[in-house]
Design a protein around this nucleic acid. Structure first.
Length: 922
DNA sequence: ATCCTCCCCTAC
DNA sequence: TAAGGTAGGGGAGGAT
């Protein structure tokens, strides 16, 4: 079934062929290096992809089987089942496989490459069907002239195809019924041959490959994905690190070579938090190899510049723009009490000319240089408006590969020295430098200087850093430092500094909040300080109000999060959505579901809640949108469905979203945007490792334990949630009986991924008012508890307590005993404590100078287990580090046993929840 | 009270 | 032409 093109590289398309040849040569090299077998790579174009050395890459299905036989996960690119290729297998594993049939993961690790290959395949498809035709060589010239092969390839090919196609019917459409043909991406609505003077219709979401092409070009998509990948990157680095940083030595050398002494800086609370951010990231990356543009106003955008276009029929920009403005005015008047007509505000659609005007471009500016900013241009602004402000504005294209490269360099540079990093986005992070600076015994100033220099020399891009005693201060300091600078917001500066900060510059204060605050008469932090906490809460809500109250004083209680856990997975497309009928809409939902499914797999999660987001043209809005293929002025509909069991099943997702969509009863012609979101996530591993865990737990739970009544049941299925009652009878007394869930209303454990819809809420509750924690207890923790804060006084926060959990009997387990009653007892008061209290408590316990009681150890273990289950493992990590340090300082065997026990307990749950152990340094 | 759902806001 | 994504926090208001 597979055909083969043995004329490679293509002789009629040198620039492109040459480019591909180089790429493929590189692949070959990698292949040869790892396998030692390959001789050449060439192409087939049967809709499958590349093949190696005369051996075909297996089909998607074959590859799936092959990979999974070796314990790997198969990946596709472009969401088209026929295009490969990547696995998550380690090299060694791949080497042991039949390599001549497998494509190594690193061959194609980037989407650009995948796209080029896809393009190439398309081209070959195309060429093959037109063997008699000579290609137009104009594209070659264009490529040369442009000098930017990477970015002109697709367009060049496409242009070429269009030109050739315009004289006859699409060759692809005629070749066969093979649906790979659809990759041609040339839409011909009428299915009639295109006339010579007819242009092919534009691509919309109806095109089978639309999603991948759109995502390829979407800056926001790239930013989002890349940002998320760094959160994961930091997680991974932390997990695999021994937290020793040999590079610090060399860094210290460089600092000492500076031979400059700075005074010791003091930051609030002795913390040194650094915020680091690349300066106009996209532009800087683009300027690396465009030195001639340095110092000029430059913007990164899709638009090539002010070439006026002819008007699309039906476009009515002013009507649409007015709708945006009205909506904004309405919102503001509601928020501020001012009359709609009296509100003045700036809108993004101000200053946009008509489509056929030279200032009419509605291409968004992703990033612009400081020279451009000086003229009033800003990120997110439309190109038309920007050109009005600065007609000499230079534009440069996106370079997503470059962003990735620079971002990785940035992260890996910092990660050499510390892993106390919170990734914010691909070009921005917070770093807790407290330990680092102390350990290296260097000044923050020197450290910043050398670090920034290193980043600049490695990436060719400038960055700025800000230092402060908390994340807010560090962030504001960075803003002050920009561009290409550093700033230290020391303790003594905070008050004055904050006074002058504009509210809009506070993180979390966006357009809406800023305008609301302005309507209250406040523009700066200094002025907002005159408002009371309650006033703020009244106007902005409890949390936001309190946050703002702190923020305008330079306070920030939020700590850095070094370890992040994803809470939702989604994919949406709000561009190019134009359906003729419901079938097209459902087909798109199917494809988008596939995208979401693929992401769920990628992140190894299942979800229980599926939300469909629809953007529908508002009745008053013109049918033809102001922005080409944009969504225009829309109403947004969000509808969600909660499943009984978490899933990542593509069929289920597709079925549910289509079902939701049908219920909305929307004219498909009016759809302008579609998104699918999956929430209430659970780790995929909790299901797959269930068997192993159970086994582990059964082994762990010896008969003696059971006899000793440490557990009230012999069934071990849910011991993960159970708190062993180690010895004392105190727990029994304190467990309020009425909280026991009777067997007659079976509830399932959420951690096993089989929670029914309701129990989460049901099983929560306060302890009965009268219930007292054993105040007579001799154990220290309880003394501490009672002495410090009576449990009843604590904000009793979701203790996740179940006293009794009926065990769901796995269907596959026939031998399981029938007694499914499990009793769970938890030291509720302790588990209800806020984390800070626990830390305090832990410290008090460790400093008590006494021999630890096992019941105290259990309390701590139980708390940490719950934290892991709640996926709050960052805190667990901190507590464990603290515990390790202190127990090793104490040095007694009892305390080290305490530590070991806690670790063991935590790891058990970690494996259960995350599928792997937590990294714990030594 | 405490939840859930839908919606808004913010950030990059 | 143009590529208006994605995740998280939080609030309003109804259901329980």
């Amino acid at each position: 079934m597979r055909r083969r093109d043995d004329k490679f590289p293509d002789n009629g398309f040198e620039a492109w062929g040459g480019y591909m040849q180089a790429k493929i040569a590189k692949l070959e090299e990698q292949f040869t290096k790892s396998a030692g077998k390959a001789e050449s790579l060439s192409h087939i174009f049967n809709g499958v992809s590349i093949y190696v050395n005369g051996y075909t890459v297996p089909s998607a299905d074959e590859l799936k089987v092959l990979m999974s036989n070796h314990g790997g996960i198969y990946h596709t690119y472009q969401r088209s089942e026929d295009f490969v290729i990547a696995s998550n297998l380690p090299d060694t594993k791949v080497k042991n496989m039949n390599l001549s049939k497998i494509v190594k993961p690193e061959w194609i690790t980037d989407s650009i490459m995948a796209n080029k290959l896809l393009d190439y395949r398309e081209y070959l498809l195309y060429k093959n069907s037109r063997t008699q035709q000579q290609l137009n060589f104009k594209t070659k010239v264009d490529i040369k002239k442009n000098g930017d092969v990477n970015n002109s390839i697709s367009n060049a090919i496409f242009e070429d195809m269009k030109q050739n196609l315009s004289t006859e019917k699409s060759p692809i459409a005629t070749t066969s019924s093979n649906d790979h043909n659809s990759h041609m991406n040339i839409k011909n609505d009428s299915n009639e041959p295109l006339k010579a003077n007819q242009k092919p219709a534009v691509k919309t979401a109806v095109d089978p490959n639309f999603i991948s092409e759109f995502y390829n070009n979407s800056r926001l998509h790239h930013i989002s994905q890349l940002g998320a990948s760094f959160k994961q990157h930091i997680n991974d680095l932390r997990e695999n690190s021994n937290f020793k940083f040999p590079a610090r030595l060399e860094l210290k050398d460089r600092i000492q070579a500076l031979n400059s002494n700075f005074s010791q800086l003091t930051f609030e609370k002795g913390k040194v938090i650094m915020h680091i951010d690349m300066d106009c990231f996209f532009v800087s990356v683009g300027l690396r190899n465009r030195p001639e543009l340095r110092g000029k106003p430059v913007a990164v955008t899709h638009s090539k510049g002010g070439q006026p276009r002819s008007k699309r029929p039906g476009v009515d920009r002013s009507t649409e723009f007015n709708l945006y403005k009205q909506k904004q005015a309405k919102k503001l008047s509601k928020a501020t009490g001012t009359h709609e007509d009296e509100i003045e505000f700036e809108s993004r659609v101000d200053n946009i000319a008509d489509e056929d005007d030279k200032y009419g471009s509605m291409s968004e500016i992703a990033s612009c240089s400081y020279e451009a900013r000086a003229k009033g241009i800003g990120n997110g602004m439309f190109m038309g408006a920007a050109l009005k402000l600065c007609p000499e504005l230079q534009t440069i294209p996106y370079d997503f590969e470059g962003y990735k490269e620079v971002a990785y360099t940035l992260y890996n540079t910092i990660a050499q020295y510390t892993l106390d990093i919170e990734a914010v986005s691909c070009d921005e992070m917070y770093v807790d430098c407290t330990e680092l600076l102390k350990d290296m015994d260097v000044s923050a100033q020197n450290f910043a200087m050398v670090l920034r220099e290193e980043i600049k020399s490695k990436t060719g891009c400038p960055c700025s850093t800000g230092f402060g005693g908390n994340r807010l201060q560090a962030r504001l300091a960075t803003k002050r430092a920009k561009p290409d600078g550093q700033f230290f917001l020391t303790e003594d500066l905070v008050e004055d500094f904050m006074f002058g900060i504009e509210l809009r510059d506070l993180p979390g204060v966006g357009r809406q909040t800023a305008q609301k605050l302005e309507s209250l008469g406040h523009k700066s932090c200094g002025s907002l300080q005159s408002l009371t906490l309650n006033t703020l809460k009244t106007h902005l809500g409890n949390k936001t109000g309190a946050q703002l109250f702190d923020q305008c004083r330079g306070r920030d209680l939020n700590t850095l999060h070094f370890y992040t856990v994803r809470k939702s997975v989604s994919a949406e497309v709000n561009y190019g959505i134009r359906f003729e009928n419901n079938e097209q809409c459902y087909e798109f939902l199917k494809q988008l579901s596939a995208e979401v499914h693929s992401r769920l797999q990628q992140f190894k999660v299942l979800g229980k809640c599926i939300t469909l987001k629809l953007m529908v043209r508002a009745e008053e809005a013109p049918v033809e949108t102001a922005k080409f293929m944009g969504h225009g002025f829309c109403n947004v509909i969000n509808k969600s469905i909660s499943l009984n069991t978490a899933t990542n099943d593509i069929e289920v997702i597709t079925r549910e979203v289509i079902s939701i969509c049908q219920k909305q009863n929307i004219d498909p012609k009016e759809m302008r945007g579609i998104g699918i979101q999956v929430t209430k996530l659970e780790p995929l591993n909790s299901k797959t490792t269930k068997g192993a865990i159970s086994k582990f737990l059964s082994n762990k739970l010896t008969k003696t334990d059971i006899k000793n009544e440490n557990y009230e049941t012999s069934n071990s299925k849910n011991t993960i949630l159970k708190q062993p009652r180690t010895g004392t009878s105190e727990y029994k007394q304190t467990t309020p009986k009425k909280e026991k869930i009777s067997l007659s209303s079976p509830k399932k454990s959420p951690i096993l991924g089989v929670t029914t819809k309701s129990p989460l809420s049901k099983r929560r509750g306060r302890p009965p008012k009268g219930s007292k924690l054993r105040s007579t207890s001799k154990n220290l923790i309880n003394k501490f508890l009672t002495g410090h804060n009576s449990v009843r006084d604590m904000p009793y926060k979701d203790p996740m307590v179940k006293n009794e959990i009926p065990v769901k009997k796995p269907i596959e387990e026939i031998n399981v005993k029938q007694e499914t009653k499990i009793k769970e007892e938890k030291p509720k008061g302790f588990l209800g404590l806020p984390w800070e209290k626990v830390r305090e408590l832990l410290r008090a316990w460790l400093d008590s100078g006494q021999v630890p009681l096992s019941c105290d150890t259990e309390l701590i273990s139980a708390y940490m287990r719950e934290m892991v289950i709640k996926k709050d493992i960052e805190k667990v990590n901190i507590l464990i580090n603290f515990l390790r340090r202190r127990t090793s300082e104490i040095g007694s065997s009892e305390w080290s046993e305490v530590y070991n026990h806690v670790i063991q307990e935590v790891q058990k749950v970690m494996i259960f929840v995350y599928g792997k152990k937590m990294f714990i340094g030594d």
